[in-house]
Design a protein around this nucleic acid. Structure first.
Length: 117
DNA sequence: GGTCTGACCGGCG
DNA sequence: ACGCCGGCCAGAC
């Protein structure tokens, strides 16, 4: 057994977020709170958003499918270009108006529910 | 080593 | 209906 040292690997939290985001179906969106809750950190929705910041380094992660509780593309500014997020969403079939996802509630994809938590 | 912020959310006045 | 505040985790200065 190793010592009581923390795991030197990347933080599971980040990878967990990535895993969930990757599971988001095309044409669907989710919010930070849903992911946070799925991971068991409901109150730490901020952490999720921040994890996304690191996720930004992983271009394989559809971060554009993650919006805030209002369905607003709050993180669009963190993309390569402010239009990238909306552009990708529209390409996925998600209509975005004024940086806001249309029919957000219908497009909403809850991992805790869809994945059957 | 302490402090602050961060792609948030929900509650309260 | 709107604005403000606290809370959680982790990294950067």
């Amino acid at each position: 057994m190793e010592k009581s040292k923390k795991q030197p690997a990347e933080h599971n939290f980040f990878e967990d977020v990535y895993a969930v985001v990757k599971l988001i179906p095309k044409g669907r969106v989710t919010n930070y709170g849903a992911i946070a809750r799925y991971l068991g950190t409901a109150m730490s929705a901020r952490m999720v958003g921040w994890a996304m910041n690191a996720a930004h380094a992983h271009k394989s992660i559809p971060a554009h499918r993650v919006v805030n509780a209002q369905g607003l593309l709050t993180g669009k500014h963190h993309f390569e270009t402010p239009n990238a997020m909306q552009h990708r969403l529209e390409k996925d079939g998600v209509k975005v108006k004024k940086d806001k996802v249309q029919d957000f509630e219908k497009r909403f994809w809850d991992p805790a529910r869809e994945l059957g938590l």
